[in-house]
Amino acid sequence: MKYRLKISEETAELDVSGSAGRQNAEFTIGEKTYSVRYRAIPDHCLHMVVDGKRVSVFVADGGQGKYVFLNGKSFLVRDADRLPLRRARRGGPDQTPGDVTPPMPSVVVRIMVEEGDLVKKGQGLIVVTAMKMETTLVAPSDGRVKKINTSIEAKVAPGDILVEVEEEEQENE
């Protein structure tokens, strides 16, 4: 079985073969093949022996993928084939270049532009706050504000498109 798994912006293909019932399998990622024995230790812990090396990892299903903890590091692993369609629209796998989305769950405190405004790349559009810290979301490119999808005091999350900025016509995509 094949998976396409994404960590941050890096997608890698993983091919798994072997019997799930036996609790061992071969995993191929790129040029490398790993031989893995595994068992689940409830809850959330997986004990694996990878090419003879023992390791315990913790896995939790978040809405957008699985969080994997490994020796003090934490990875968000997502199935590239199951990412929401909205995110996979034109332009790129995550969001269209003109869309502005908050990096973290936060609250909108200021909206500094109006629909129809011309904006420059890097210009502040919206200020959000979380846990006593304010962050300004900026225009990803020169263009015109096509739509504002939020209001002051709205609770917003990553993936919510707060402002859509349309690149001006003179440059074709």
Partner: peptide, 20 residues
Amino acid sequence: MEGADLARIAYVVDELTTVK
């Protein structure tokens, strides 16, 4: 990114063991 391969393997192992 050291450990990213293992994290991907863990993702699939979790799928396999959850289905069971």
